[in-house]
């Protein structure tokens, strides 16, 4: 179980994340929504410790991970996989090597430096790619793939880490609707079949409603709503989007919810 207690992040004078506390169980697919700048990305990056919290505690299965360092920190990052908006693959490496980055941390230094991986690792990588229908491109350079394909490769990489927790920072914001659906389906499947919690930042309410079992809404760095998608009423949305989103101007189908 992931638990956040009073997690706060300041960048200079700006308060990016303000005293956030929540917890999340195995099998939950949590969608975090909010305007850009609400602190969603910073929150996820703090869980994975790509960003260090200014204050507060983050713990996993009762063990504090917010003060980890060095090897222990890398161990934690391996256990919680991260998926990014811009995929963050190395465009010049081939797809399979990008996926195998997920096991680099567990392999001996010399063989990793040579980009050598045992056959068992390769087979696992191919199976993960195949599950996302990407095995055919295994030897292509990642940079030659479309955005949707790259994101699927990034998910395969995350899966190779055998994560106990999956974080996804706007995974579909750069994708077209069809690819967005493929990627969200994959995340949902991971959540159900491997019974790991998935926390995903979303800017699309429609997608959040359709896939998430629970929605957390953030505004100005603080949590303003936490509950099932059905509880997301117009009153709540007004608070989240600070009145900017009236039914007429809303880009997503808020109208039916209201």
């Amino acid at each position: 179980m992931l638990e956040l207690h009073g997690v706060t992040k300041r960048f200079g004078d700006t308060l990016a994340v303000d005293n956030v506390s929540f917890s999340c169980q195995r099998g939950e697919l949590v969608g975090i929504i909010g305007r850009s700048g609400a602190g969603k990305s910073t929150l996820l990056r703090m869980v994975n410790r790509l960003t260090d919290p200014t204050d507060g505690h983050i713990s996993w299965d009762g063990r504090d991970v917010s003060r980890l360092n060095g090897a222990a920190l890398r161990q934690w990052r391996r256990r919680c996989a991260m998926i990014f908006q811009q995929f963050n693959l190395c465009p010049r490496l081939d797809v399979i090597t990008n996926v195998l980055v997920g096991v680099v941390a567990e392999r001996p230094l010399a063989s990793s430096l040579m980009k050598f991986f045992p056959a068992a690792d390769r087979a696992r990588a191919i199976l993960e790619l195949d599950a996302l229908d990407m095995a055919h491109a295994a030897l292509q350079r990642a940079g030659t793939l479309s955005g949707g394909q790259q994101q699927r490769v990034a998910i395969a990489r995350a899966m190779l880490q055998e994560p106990e927790l999956v974080l996804a920072d706007e995974p579909v914001a750069s994708l077209d609707p069809v690819n967005a659906e493929v990627v969200m389906d994959a995340l949902q499947k991971i959540c159900r079949e491997r019974n790991v919690p998935v926390i995903v930042n979303l800017h699309s309410l429609e997608i959040a409603r359709r896939y998430c079992t629970r929605i957390v809404a953030m505004s100005k760095g603080a949590i303003v709503f936490d509950g099932p998608p059905a509880g997301l009423t117009q009153t709540v949305l007004d608070r989240v989007y600070a009145g900017r989103m009236t039914p007429e101007t809303a880009p997503f189908s808020i109208v039916e919810a209201a």
Partner: peptide, 28 residues
């Protein structure tokens, strides 16, 4: 920076982050 972030998020050591995140970009 993005590929480096991606590789770091997989929990690899700084040396490996250079090998898989930076080197493929700068060596050519």
């Amino acid at each position: 920076e993005k590929p480096l972030d991606g590789v770091r998020a997989a929990g690899v050591s700084p040396l490996m982050a250079l090998r898989y995140g930076l080197a493929p970009q700068v060596v050519p």
